[in-house]
Amino acid sequence: MDIAFLMDDLRQIDPVWETTAQIMYECNQRGHEVFFLEPHDIYVRKNQVVARMRHISVPKDQPMTDYWADLICCLNREELIFETVTDLDVLFLRKDPPINHEVMEFLGPVSDQVFLVNNTLGQLNCSSKAYILNFPDIIPETHVSRDPSRLKKIIDDFGGAMVIKPLHGHGGHGVIKVSNQDQENLNSLINYYVKAGKPYPERQPIMVQEYLKQVKEQGDVRILLLDGEILGAMGRKSVSGDFRTNVHAGALAFKHDITPAHKEICRRIKPKLQQDGLYFVGIDIIGDKLVEINCISPGGIPRINRFNNQKLEIAVVNFIEEKISGANPKKHK
């Protein structure tokens, strides 16, 4: 198969802890043709969506560090492959958030002609933290507004700690805990986040969500889902006093066993994820509440592999092989 990975510059990542690197390595091990491109490499030529790509031609059976060194050499070569996107079998959209709307616009018209992980329309819908509102009965109390006075009243009426989240933030950036006990700072923070100095239509809506106290003692759980089914999971907990549990924010990851409550959450959201073409996602759970769905470059495979002595990337590549062989059995028999 011809499998391409769209991501940020691979020279800037540590392959040992990068989910994309593990999937690329597994594709290479199976003898698939692997290509790499960045968002700016997609364009249109004679009404067709085309990509400037680099062919990652690397020997099999190397340690990851050697494989990655050879991969970087492939990136540094001048040769470019100019490929019509629809000639690919699979295109992994693994660019880190925020979402690149230009890429989504270019790929949207051909999304039914190449298998995208994940689907463009699904990513556009799920790129906002508001996507969890599709599941109102399994999420914490949640509000979204751009009106400072309304947000202030929500927090005052709630009477306890709440969490402010930018709708399009990622990696815990911009997520803060607030309380009605600190009125002076509360007003300032709300005004800052919604950009209250601008006219109402130009302000930024923000999410205000119930603070779940379990996060302090238990942390949260990241579950990776593949086609709606549980692929693997890990726990995450802050070790610095920060309430955020993102590994990029300094949290500690640890082994986690899936609970019946977590299985039920996954069961509830599976049909919607499949409907939206969100085949590979990461969800975050605190206690028994769904707090976030990550569809843009979800990570966690390397850490979960180490905790459980697994290779989850095998299941990911098995899945895409089955999808492609089923869609075009003559080409891939």
Rank of each mutant, 00 (worst) to 15 (best):
292 E>M: 07
53 M>G: 02
296 I>Q: 14
215 V>S: 09
198 K>I: 10
202 E>K: 12
170 H>L: 02
212 L>P: 05
296 I>A: 12
56 I>A: 01
125 N>H: 05
157 D>F: 01
283 I>P: 05
266 C>A: 15
9 D>E: 10
169 G>W: 11
295 C>A: 15
64 M>D: 06
239 V>K: 15
259 T>I: 08
242 D>W: 01
326 G>H: 07
140 P>R: 03
243 F>E: 09
168 H>L: 10
298 P>F: 06
146 R>W: 07
225 L>T: 06
14 D>E: 12
309 N>E: 15
284 D>V: 07
41 D>Q: 04
238 S>F: 00
85 V>R: 00
275 Q>A: 14
97 P>I: 04
41 D>T: 01
22 Q>V: 03
217 E>N: 14
2 D>Y: 02
32 H>V: 01
135 F>I: 10
65 T>Y: 13
328 N>W: 11
202 E>N: 14
79 E>D: 10
237 K>V: 10
159 G>H: 08
195 K>D: 13
149 S>N: 08
110 V>Y: 09
33 E>R: 11
104 M>D: 01
302 P>V: 08
318 N>P: 05
56 I>E: 00
29 Q>W: 07
35 F>N: 01
220 D>L: 07
207 M>E: 11
51 A>G: 15
112 D>N: 15
114 V>W: 09
15 P>C: 08
8 D>L: 08
275 Q>R: 12
207 M>F: 05
202 E>W: 07
211 Y>P: 05
309 N>D: 15
323 K>L: 08
239 V>M: 15
320 I>A: 04
47 N>S: 14
144 V>G: 03
290 L>P: 12
87 D>Y: 09
95 K>T: 10
280 F>A: 05
87 D>E: 13
303 R>S: 10
213 K>M: 10
51 A>H: 02
6 L>C: 13
326 G>I: 08
25 Y>K: 14
208 V>P: 03
302 P>T: 07
82 F>W: 03
331 K>N: 09
127 S>C: 12
175 V>S: 03
197 G>F: 14
44 V>Y: 03
141 E>W: 02
51 A>Q: 02
101 H>E: 10
192 Y>Q: 13
15 P>V: 06
